[in-house]
């Protein structure tokens, strides 16, 4: 059971809370101590919209321990609209086949269970194809700035 490490990252996992560099305005996800663009200190919260596009994807058939119950599942690299890329599962895939360039949106889902039905449940970001018209909700609320 690894509660502290999951707890520490809850904001970014649940709602894609990243940072904006106060020096060069780069949008940073996940949060870092040092801005990867300009090398300045980064610490200002920034809520990502959760919208992005599939950069690449694969279907996992041979899941590692802790993930067998979800196999097969699709993992993608998502290029967020604000710039950074993230690795995340795709979920709620409908009939439309996944393709590179597919627009997706962030949802908060159960990622895994820690420790054989006794440990905590780990929640975090996944992405799904944008399934409603343009007025569908942003992924996260608040905390900007």
């Amino acid at each position: 059971m690894e509660n502290p490490r999951y707890w520490r990252l809850k904001k970014q996992r649940y709602s894609l809370l990243g940072e904006v560099c106060p020096h060069c305005d780069s949008k940073i996800f996940p949060p870092r101590d040092i801005c990867p663009e300009c090398g300045g200190e980064a610490k200002t919260d920034f809520a990502f919209s959760g919208k992005g596009k599939v950069y690449s994807y694969t279907v996992m058939r041979d899941a590692p321990a802790g993930y067998e119950q979800n196999a097969p599942y699709t993992v993608a690299i998502v290029a967020l609209d604000e710039g950074p890329m993230v690795t995340a599962q795709l979920t709620d895939l409908g009939e439309e086949p996944v393709r590179i360039g597919m627009p997706v949106e962030m949802v908060t889902r159960k990622l895994r269970e820690d420790g054989e039905k006794k440990g905590i449940l780990v929640y975090g970001y996944k992405f799904r194809p944008i399934c409603f018209h343009e007025n569908s909700q942003p992924a996260s609320q608040g905390q900007a700035g």
Binding site: Y57, D62, A63, P64, V75, R112, G124
Partner: peptide, 21 residues
């Protein structure tokens, strides 16, 4: 681990992402 493995990626599936691209 925190940003690739936790989402369920393995070395093999990461190579698959690269090959797909």
């Amino acid at each position: 681990y925190d940003y690739e493995s936790i989402p369920g990626l393995t070395s093999t599936s990461q190579a698959a992402l690269i090959q797909q691209r």
